[in-house]
Write a protein that binds this DNA or RNA. Structure first.
Lengths: 202, 202
DNA sequence: ACGTTACGAGTCTGACCCGTATCGTATTTC
DNA sequence: GAAATACGATACGGGTCAGACTCGTAACGT
């Protein structure tokens, strides 16, 4: 599904071609409505069509249903990954940690919490979620390994637990607003340094 | 609302008293349906009434609507807080961290993800959420302060950031299944020790 | 006994939505 | 120009649900 605009050796079917503007408008309307606070299942095809200035049939001509449309819309949302500079391991970690839950599209921040229930309900959506975050995890894993190789980190640390340690605080703060009094702006740096140094008196 | 069973100097109104069993059945049915995978807005009063073996009017007689009912039901769910023993600071932390996202009611684990979107949408629900977690945060705060007083932790650590460090990894793992390969059972201990020691080579 | 209130079950109206079909119109290829 | 396909708009049948209401019945006080 959603293999539209397969530009490969177009046999140029007759008739009026599909409007690219309609495609865009539908996706944008979907993301806008989600970002405005609609939950996934409160989101209706009719509302999307109205918002996009499009007939319902135009949507059903492109997608099989709400799920397929959402899948496409969210794919379009995920944005670009942060690219660590590679000079200082600590600075790279701060960059990666700061990028957690921060997408180029400002609507992403509003939409992410809505996906949490869906992720735990359907195996498909869980897989989609894992596909999005696992390359980011891989990136952080490589930076941590580099830190070990450079002798900055102890060789016996558990890399996976360390990643959870770096990621968890940012996620609960950005997605759940876990502690409203915590300053989000300086958090990445403070998290990284705390994980680096530990809290035990020496 | 929901000030039922105000046992204070009961003027004993005439007529048949409200059935306590109906109260229980309605709350239980609500929690059961949520735990079985129904999302909050897919949850209908009709379904709750049927499941509870109760007429719809019996529900509307007690609550103004779905929101009020949900608020009561979730309050009933929150369960008891873990009580640290107070001997070893490290063991207390492991206990508290292990208790994160782990309620006495097994339904809680299934229900929690569903609340994430709601929490960020309504100020009321956000307040309810904060009311539930803030005493637990306070408990952890006190243990950390005790660790500082005992000289186990450095005096200059940021207690709030440290709490986020301890809480975040458990929450993203238990609620989001952030990394399916991470062993959840041993995680509390490993998180606490990692935060204690840090990862920097010494 | 009698009034009062709650009970489970059911009905009814008005929303809202899905997914399909059908308008008349617009845009493309042959 | 003709055939084909898309377009926005709208109507349709089928479905779910909220809330208010109505039954006959059950449980309580006086």
């Amino acid at each position: 599904m959603a293999d539209m605009t397969s530009t490969a050796d177009a046999p140029r079917s007759p008739g009026r071609p599909r409007s690219i503007r309609a495609d865009e408008a539908i996706i944008e309307a979907t993301l806008d409505l989600l970002a405005e606070g609609s939950t996934i299942e409160a989101l209706s095809i009719e509302a999307i069509a109205t918002r996009a200035g499009v007939g319902k049939a135009t949507i059903y001509r492109r997608w099989a249903g709400k799920d397929a449309l959402l899948l496409d819309a969210l794919r379009r949302l995920k944005g670009v990954m942060a690219q660590p500079a590679g000079h200082s391991v600590r600075d790279d970690l701060v960059l990666l940690v700061g990028a957690i839950g921060k997408n180029v599209d400002p609507r992403a921040a509003k939409i992410m919490p809505c996906l949490v229930p869906a992720v735990n309900r359907s195996a498909d959506q869980f897989q989609l979620y894992q596909n999005i975050i696992s390359p980011r995890r891989q990136l952080m894993r490589e930076v941590l390994r580099r830190g070990i190789d450079e002798g900055m980190f102890r060789a016996d640390i558990d890399v996976e637990v360390t990643m959870a340690l770096l990621t968890g605080p940012m996620l609960i703060q950005r997605v759940l607003q876990w502690n409203p009094d915590l300053d989000e702006q300086s958090l990445p740096e403070r998290v990284v340094d705390a994980v680096l140094e530990g809290i035990r008196a020496r």
